[in-house]
């Protein structure tokens, strides 16, 4: 059944996406290859909407992806699946709190996981780039926009709104 599958996939994301909202992107990208729930282009739209609406980005993306897959119940189930593993783990950790961050094993695991996660997000970005940037015109726009994002520190919402306006102006 679609709901069980949805729950199981988002439970897995909740369990393995360590480090916050953006980390869920490569996992969601995996879903576009495995199922026909939503396309990679739709995933990019989800990221944009999730970053420009209130609430944690990871939760927004799970709700959106679940909704696109199986309507309102899909949105609720995907979000529940995403949140469940961390709620259980955090309640359990609350009892041994301070020992956890100081724990050398946890530190070593995190030093290894962080760069691997950075590589995962980079690859997802490259894959999305290949899908959307198909002409030199768009490539030039993308390069200019990246420089803007990198050198002027504005909020993601500002850039997403700006990109929407420029998309209309330049007829992308």
């Amino acid at each position: 059944m679609i709901y069980w599958l949805l729950f199981f996939e988002f439970f897995k994301i909740g369990l393995f996406a360590i480090g916050g909202g953006m980390v869920t992107i490569p996992f969601l990208f995996d879903l576009t290859k495995k199922y026909d729930w939503f396309s990679a282009a739709e995933l990019t739209d989800m990221i944009a909407v999730s970053q420009s609406t209130p609430g944690p980005v990871g939760v927004n993306m799970a709700t959106y992806a679940g909704f696109q897959t199986a309507g309102i119940s899909g949105g609720i189930i995907a979000t529940f699946g995403l949140v469940l593993p961390s709620v259980v783990i955090v309640i359990w950790l609350s009892k041994l709190l301070s020992h956890y961050v100081e724990n050398q094993l946890v530190k070593e695991i995190m030093t290894a996981v962080r760069p691997a996660v950075a590589a995962l997000i980079l690859l997802a970005g490259v894959e999305l780039f290949k899908l959307s940037v198909t002409t030199w015109y768009v490539a030039a726009f993308a390069a200019g926009f990246f420089l803007l994002v990198h050198f002027y520190k504005k909020s993601p919402i500002f850039y997403i709104l700006l990109a929407a306006v420029l998309g209309v102006v330049f007829k992308l």
Partner: peptide, 28 residues
């Protein structure tokens, strides 16, 4: 058109996020 622009914007934001992440975490 707006979403075509937004997709490019999001990709730029993702790549920028990777650079920030690398600066913050890749030390050794």
């Amino acid at each position: 058109h707006a979403f075509a622009g937004i997709r490019i914007g999001v990709i730029a934001l993702i790549l920028n996020e990777v650079i920030l992440l690398l600066k913050k975490t890749v030390g050794t």
